[in-house]
Design a protein around this nucleic acid. Structure first.
Length: 238
DNA sequence: CGAATTTGACCTGCGC
DNA sequence: GCGCAGGTCAAATTCG
């Protein structure tokens, strides 16, 4: 009896973790989708006046399209890279071990996100123009969004890239590992490539419908699973 | 004691 | 031109 309950609790735990990971995936997709929508709006707004420079991009996450979208110009030829890192919701450090040394030079509370945004400059080389902004996700405090601006003009340190915060406990580490596993299943080795893959998916007009269908199916499946679990528990108790 | 972080002030760009 | 919001500076403070 105890063993059965233990097994079912374990199963329930796994279902919850699956649910968390799916939420994380959905969050990443939503942010990318919002970014692309705002970018598209900017392009439409500019109309046919001029050709949009591919370096021009609005800040994220800007969920309210009525708000002013500050336009940023980046000196490098590439768009800023965004990295999503799952961490402990109570971890306020905003530290990401990405193999580079960063020096914090500012912090701001932005209007559309109560979590402060931290500004970092690369301190591995005095002339390195690389910068990054780090802020917790608006909808999920356990996700940190890091936006990288500029290119490093030096090599990376020997410390391997590890998308985890300094205070991850075991459970968060497992969740991060699961997210990485999902990305590996997509055939991508790191989060930057996954992000590119997500972007390409969102460009597919059928993607939103397919994603919504998949998420709905997962939720329904999980509900069925839970109902099954409850039934089993009830039967066991009787 | 030097390096890193914090934080309020200031600068800049955009929309109205 | 003004006000708002994001980004940066730099003096003060904290930490190793």
């Amino acid at each position: 009896m105890d063993e059965k309950v233990e097994t079912l609790e374990l199963e329930l735990q796994q279902v919850r973790e699956e649910n968390n990971n799916l939420r994380f995936m959905l969050e990443v997709m939503s942010i990318k989708c919002t970014n692309l929508e705002s970018h598209l709006q900017e392009i439409n707004k500019e109309g046919h006046k001029e050709i949009i420079n591919s370096n021009q991009i609005g800040l994220l996450p800007n969920f309210d399209t009525s708000k002013r979208a500050r336009v940023e110009y980046f000196p490098t030829a590439k768009k800023p890279k965004q990295v999503f890192v799952k961490t402990h919701p109570n971890d306020e450090s905003l530290i990401i071990k990405d193999g580079y040394q960063w020096r914090k030079y500012g912090q701001k509370v932005t209007k559309d996100n109560a979590s402060p945004r931290a500004y970092f400059r690369c301190s591995m080389a005095p002339s390195c123009p690389a910068k990054k902004k780090v802020q917790k996700c608006l909808h999920d405090k356990s996700i940190i969004v890091a936006t990288y601006d500029g290119e490093h003009n030096h090599g990376v340190s020997n410390e391997p890239f590890k998308p985890s915060s300094s205070t991850l406990n075991d459970r968060e580490a497992i969740n991060t590992r699961l997210c990485e596993d999902v990305m590996q299943q997509f055939g991508y080795g790191n989060k930057v490539k996954f992000e590119e893959y997500a972007s390409s998916l969102i460009l597919d007009p059928d993607f939103t419908a397919v994603l919504a269908k998949a998420v709905a199916k997962t939720i329904v499946d999980q509900q069925h699973k839970r109902q099954g679990l409850n039934l089993n528990l009830n039967l066991s108790q009787e």
